[in-house]
Amino acid sequence: MDIAYQEDMILNDIIDACVQRMGWQIQSITPIRRGWLNLKWKIHTDSGIYLIKQYNRERFQAYDPAVLEQAFAQQIRLRASGIPAPQLITDGHTVWHTSALGERFLVMDYCEGEIIMPGMVNEAQLYDLGRITGQMHRLLNDNSLPVQAPPLFQPPTRDQRLQYWEQLYIQFQEEGHQIYLPIVEQQRQTTITMNMDILQTLRPGWAHRDLWTDNLLFYPDKVTAVLDYDRLNYDYPQLDIARAILSCVWDGEFDLTRAAAFMQGYREVHPHYNERLSVSLQALWYMESVWWIRTGMDKDSGPPVRFVREMSWLAEHYGVLDEIIDFL
């Protein structure tokens, strides 16, 4: 079936459900081409402007519905506590909506603001993002949620990770993807020299776990919305910090001034936070590198290509991150 035709069928099914249940009069519909597989639309109605997010049926199989329900409940709580999160619209008893043909979707208020290109977030925006991230972490870890053991990220041993890189190197050789061999070799060499002890210093807690530029909206001097809480779970909050800063300030070079602005805002909420940013970035690399440097990456475009560049830079500069970011 033609993809555009299939998307139109899904949209019409969802709109029928919204009109029936909410009494909307639809004025205009604009597709939002962001995100992976899940479909999104901006909907102008007689009662306001909303965003609809449809959950791709195939991708939904990877989710635990109970975990998603918990994440949405936290999104509602965070918004009620002042975090700029989209307001979820319920059908009276649940945030989940289901269409006549079985499409699962969310309805939320449409948030104003702009998505900033990776690496281009300014100093004032980063200060505000740091402050909001600090508030979010404080609220998520105020004992309202139970401590869960273990955290989601369970670091593999050095030998396990080396085996991954060695097998990937061989596979790329066999497939004729010579262009990726230096990238994989850099990852392997960095894994050999990595100080594995840093992974024992990570402090577990509840975190957003997807805090990067595509999930942030800004005005010129502040954050207007933190989006997409699907991945919220018990993990390592300092990896939120590393992911946000790397996404917002790195564009081939690491901008210390803007990174410091984020940390200033964060430490205004957590004045005793003393984890080193260099360690957080090193741990982020160890977690994420295998997500993006993998078989099939030759078919990637958009954000995954950016993530590969980030992981390559972190691996190349792993041994000198302490010197580059010595005061953060």
Rank of each mutant, 00 (worst) to 15 (best):
E69V: 05
P65Q: 02
K42F: 08
Y110N: 03
Y234H: 08
G265I: 11
I83V: 15
Q171P: 00
M196L: 09
S247P: 00
R77L: 09
H44M: 06
I26D: 05
Y229Q: 03
G176L: 07
D109N: 14
K299T: 13
E58K: 04
Q125N: 13
R21L: 08
E58L: 10
T257I: 15
V305R: 14
E174H: 01
R258G: 10
M9N: 06
G319H: 11
L140V: 09
D326L: 14
W96H: 09
R77W: 07
Y110V: 02
A283D: 03
Y180K: 13
L232M: 14
D251M: 05
D13W: 06
T295S: 15
A260N: 15
I115T: 14
I52R: 00
R21H: 10
G92I: 12
V290E: 13
N195M: 03
Q74M: 12
K53H: 04
V269C: 11
I52W: 01
W36K: 02
I14P: 01
F153R: 09
T295Y: 08
G302K: 00
E103P: 00
E253P: 00
A62L: 08
E7K: 05
A260Q: 15
A71D: 09
W24I: 12
Y63E: 13
G252W: 03
I49G: 02
I10G: 00
I245C: 04
P237I: 07
T213M: 07
W206C: 09
